[in-house]
Design a protein around this nucleic acid. Structure first.
Lengths: 184, 184
DNA sequence: CGTCGCATGTAACCAGTTACATGATTAA
DNA sequence: TTAATCATGTAACTGGTTACATGCGACG
């Protein structure tokens, strides 16, 4: 799914501006499976407008810059359903942290602890955010959003707990190996 | 982490050819957090060789095409440690399946079931593969590989179970909604 | 006989990232 | 006064994907 389709997806949930779409990508339920910065969202929105899949209305705001509010139309909704009907590409997960942790034996226990603690804190924040927002954003959305949000929550919780439960053992092993090497 | 660094990581585990590196990306423990096809691996390997971070020796094989076996050298190992020392970028997860499932209310129960069942089967395969390989590939590697493989296993198991446990409820809700809509 | 696995590579393409450009308001 | 939030956009870059090119051996 490219940014164009993802934007169509956000707009299918309700009208919004490019700026707001980006917030959906980094905060809302879409953050679990989609991404995109301004540099890809704005051109995508212009393209979708040119293709006649969304409509745009400029809104002047007080004490704020003007904004362009986009709304999906029938053709756009059809295009979204069409994309949804295709076979999904494989999930892709990329993690620098896991790559670094894979080489934990070559790293200081302090760095390992810092890295893992930071990630636990990150997951805690995400989870807290989700339990607060869960009811209004996901719950109101229906079966699909509920299912996806629940999935995200379950996975984040597991990841968080794994890091928390196995941190000490990892650091112990690395520390032990370091002492052995130093004694040689 | 770009493909160059990831290749360096694979080679830090032992010498191998471009072809074998790709297998590590799609099967081994690296598959949980890294990716890359031939089109990016071969140029990366040539680049690393030109930069003097790895050494290459051509090996003629019987009844097989010749292969180029790459070996990381001191400078390469230093470069890897350097990359490992930097602050990791945020994890990125992209999932077409979750995107589609988010719009479950617009899809047929049959399609939902097919999609979810296929993904459960995919996770089952991954998990089976990991429990078999776990001992030799990860266990022999030390604390880091163990930790990372355990993480992958925990997350896959949770994802698999979530899909399995919540599939019926999702389909029921979607079916119910469809019937209500049809009655109107 | 077909196609899968082994094995390496290049060239064109493209999607998305980064950096830049602009500018008002508001909270620390 | 500094940074953050709101708000939109462009241009250059770059990294990686896709498709192509080649070829033998094994298995069914």
């Amino acid at each position: 799914m490219d940014v164009k389709t993802t934007c169509l997806g956000v707009l299918a949930m309700g009208e919004s501006s490019g700026y707001e779409i980006r917030k959906h990508f980094e905060e809302g339920p879409f953050s679990h499976f989609a991404e995109g910065g301004f540099g890809s969202i704005y051109p995508a929105l212009n393209r979708l407008t040119a293709d006649g899949l969304i409509d745009c209305s400029e809104q002047a705001q007080e004490k704020r810059p003007d904004k362009k509010v986009y709304r999906i139309n029938e053709r756009g909704f059809a295009a979204l359903l069409d994309a949804l009907g295709k076979a999904p590409a494989e999930d892709r997960y990329k993690s620098d942290l896991l790559f670094i942790l894979f080489f934990a034996d070559h790293m200081s226990p302090e760095r390992l602890e810092g890295l893992i603690d930071a990630r636990i804190a990150f997951y805690d924040e995400k989870l807290a955010h989700m339990s607060v927002r869960g009811a209004d954003i996901c719950g109101a959305g229906g079966a699909g959003p509920d299912f996806v949000c629940g999935f995200g929550q379950a996975v984040y919780q597991t990841a968080r707990d794994y890091l928390n439960d196995n941190k000490a053992a990892l650091i112990d092993r690395v520390t032990a190996r370091r002492e052995t090497n130093a004694a040689e």
